[in-house]
């Protein structure tokens, strides 16, 4: 069953489809929770967060757009993880080692944000490999640059510069299309 079919069945509250979603996406959701939390959550907390992600999905099936199930799950996973991190107290200090202020740029209205997001797939397809893979791993799968350099066999500095260049390219392309 592809994502569109699963999404349709979820909207009808079909439990079997929901079971399939859980089975299929537990590894991805758990990965995103683990990656976004940067190892600060215990295994129990990761399990609880993953559970909460699927519970949230079930309670908000009306919000699923048929071909965006995976992205929607990723977004819920990120949000729930950040919520949980804000509730966990610990002695460790949280460092956002990969965050870069240059990520930010302005999009003026909600409508334009969504339109820009819809354009992103097309924009990404115009970007050459391996830059394309790097940016997907970073933003979609929440892998950090160290992990990306490891699995892709690239120098860490190379990954970081390619990431920065690709971000600038995406931003330029959005600018060309009038979204920034």
């Amino acid at each position: 069953m592809n994502d569109s079919e699963l999404a349709r069945k979820l909207k009808k509250k079909e439990e079997k489809a929901f079971e399939t979603v859980i089975r299929q996406y537990t590894p991805l959701v758990a990965t995103i929770v683990r990656n976004v939390s940067k190892g600060l959550l215990s295994k129990e907390d990761i399990e609880e967060t993953v559970t909460d992600v699927f519970v949230t999905l079930w309670k908000n099936t009306d919000s699923i757009i048929e071909d965006k199930l995976k992205g929607y799950l990723c977004r819920i996973a990120r949000t729930r993880t950040l919520n949980r991190l804000s509730a966990v107290r610990n002695h460790e200090v949280l460092n956002i080692d990969d965050y870069d202020l240059e990520d930010d740029f302005s999009l003026s209205a909600e409508v334009e944000k969504n339109a820009a997001a819809a354009q992103l797939r097309e924009i990404i397809s115009e970007i050459e490999m391996p830059d394309r893979e790097i940016i997907i791993r970073y933003y979609y799968y929440a892998q950090n640059t160290t992990k990306i350099s490891e699995v892709m066999g690239l120098n860490l500095h190379t990954v970081k510069s390619k990431l920065q260049r690709t971000r600038s390219k995406i931003k330029s392309k959005l600018l060309e299309r009038g979204y920034v």
Partner: peptide, 27 residues
């Protein structure tokens, strides 16, 4: 807004990347 928002709301992942070896993605 951030790049992250755009990726979260991207319609579908580019097909060429759906063939990524899952063992290198999942933790």
């Amino acid at each position: 807004n951030t790049m992250q928002y755009l990726f979260d709301n991207m319609d579908t992942i580019p097909e060429s990347l759906e063939n990524i070896d899952e063992s290198t993605v999942y933790t």
